[in-house]
């Protein structure tokens, strides 16, 4: 029995998910590849967005993959950390904006 749920070596096996559902797997990887192509946004910008989202969804595989992708694209560590903060700010903002709900409920229930 493995001691952890995550194994870095599993990232290399990602494409094997198609083995148990070829059509859906193939469609997913085709879509995934298309998303990260150069478009209205540059591949570089998309890489930084992916890095920020990787942190927000707390996916260790994605963090490894997009840190490496950023290095390959010459993205600096300052740019990477700012992207992580952008993700973190939205995530904490999403928590804090519920404070308004709390305030509303508090006011409604109070005399």
């Amino acid at each position: 029995m493995k001691k952890t749920y995550y194994d870095p070596a599993d990232l290399k096996k990602f494409s094997s998910i198609t083995e148990w559902s070829k059509e859906l797997g193939d469609k997913f990887f085709e879509y995934y590849g298309k998303v990260f192509e150069e478009g209205a946004l540059s591949a570089r910008e998309k890489s930084l967005i992916a890095l920020a989202v990787s942190h927000v969804v707390k996916c260790p595989y994605c963090i490894d993959a997009y840190t490496k992708d950023g290095l390959q694209r010459g993205i600096t560590k300052e740019e990477m950390m700012e992207a992580v903060h952008a993700g973190a700010a939205i995530e904490s903002g999403a928590t804090l904006v519920h404070g308004v709900q709390m305030m509303n409920k508090y006011e409604k229930l109070s005399m």
């Binding site: 540059s42 591949a43 390959q72 694209r73």
Partner: peptide, 8 residues
């Protein structure tokens, strides 16, 4: 790590 797109 590897280099990516030379042009960019």
């Amino acid at each position: 790590f590897l280099p990516t797109d030379q042009a960019s």
